[in-house]
Computed example of a mutant assay.
Amino acid sequence: MSQLTHINSNGDANMVDVSAKADTVREARAEAFVNMNAETLALIMSGDHHKGDVFATARIAGIQAAKKTWDLIPLCHPLLLSKVEVNLQALPDDNAVRIESVCKLAGKTGVEMEALTAASVAALTIYDMCKAVQKDIVISQVRLLEKVGGKSGHFKVNS
């Protein structure tokens, strides 16, 4: 089993030194699901929500969050992302919204946390915008789908 990278030999949390690593193209995809009542999803899909376009707001929030991941998650490196994409898909048969994020850069460290943060914050934004009409919305299955690049190579969820 691999060792935890953010723990030094004394057992203290520390930021990993990536200065000796070569820049490589790195990309990560993550997803999250937001489950709600059919009426809440219909309100979002109709565009009649009193707070405005829920998907547009969630998309922007996810993009902003990816860019601020280093500010939100201790020990993450500040990254110059070259691409952040947040896609939202209504799933009426499941009374859910699927969020998929993609983050990319050429750099010394991966973008998994940025992709996960983008999907998570987009989901939280949907909750925030819809909590007035439904308080028991459930955010679930926030996970890394794929990552490419870097020393650890290619990872893809089997599903």
Score class of each variant (00 low, 15 high):
residue 98 R to P: 00
residue 79 L to T: 09
residue 76 C to E: 04
residue 75 L to V: 05
residue 106 A to E: 15
residue 98 R to M: 15
residue 102 V to R: 13
residue 94 D to Q: 14
residue 91 L to P: 03
residue 104 K to D: 03
residue 72 L to R: 04
residue 108 K to I: 10
residue 71 D to I: 05
residue 98 R to K: 15
residue 88 L to F: 01
residue 74 P to N: 11
residue 88 L to E: 01
residue 87 N to L: 11
residue 91 L to W: 02
residue 101 S to C: 02
residue 99 I to M: 02
residue 84 V to L: 03
residue 99 I to G: 02
residue 100 E to A: 10
residue 72 L to Q: 05
residue 109 T to R: 06
residue 71 D to Y: 08
residue 95 N to H: 15
residue 78 P to H: 05
residue 85 E to D: 15
residue 84 V to E: 01
residue 103 C to L: 06
residue 100 E to C: 13
residue 83 K to L: 11
residue 81 L to Y: 13
residue 94 D to A: 14
residue 70 W to T: 07
residue 106 A to P: 00
residue 92 P to G: 09
residue 71 D to G: 10
residue 88 L to S: 02
residue 99 I to F: 03
residue 70 W to K: 02
residue 93 D to A: 15
residue 96 A to Q: 00
residue 77 H to C: 09
residue 73 I to Y: 14
residue 92 P to D: 15
residue 109 T to E: 13
residue 89 Q to D: 07
residue 72 L to N: 08
residue 71 D to F: 11
residue 83 K to W: 00
residue 72 L to F: 10
residue 95 N to E: 03
residue 92 P to V: 02
residue 91 L to K: 13
residue 108 K to L: 09
residue 108 K to P: 05
residue 103 C to Q: 03
residue 93 D to K: 12
residue 81 L to W: 12
residue 79 L to E: 06
residue 81 L to C: 09
residue 77 H to E: 05
residue 72 L to D: 02
residue 75 L to D: 02
residue 74 P to Q: 13
residue 73 I to T: 07
residue 97 V to R: 00
residue 100 E to H: 02
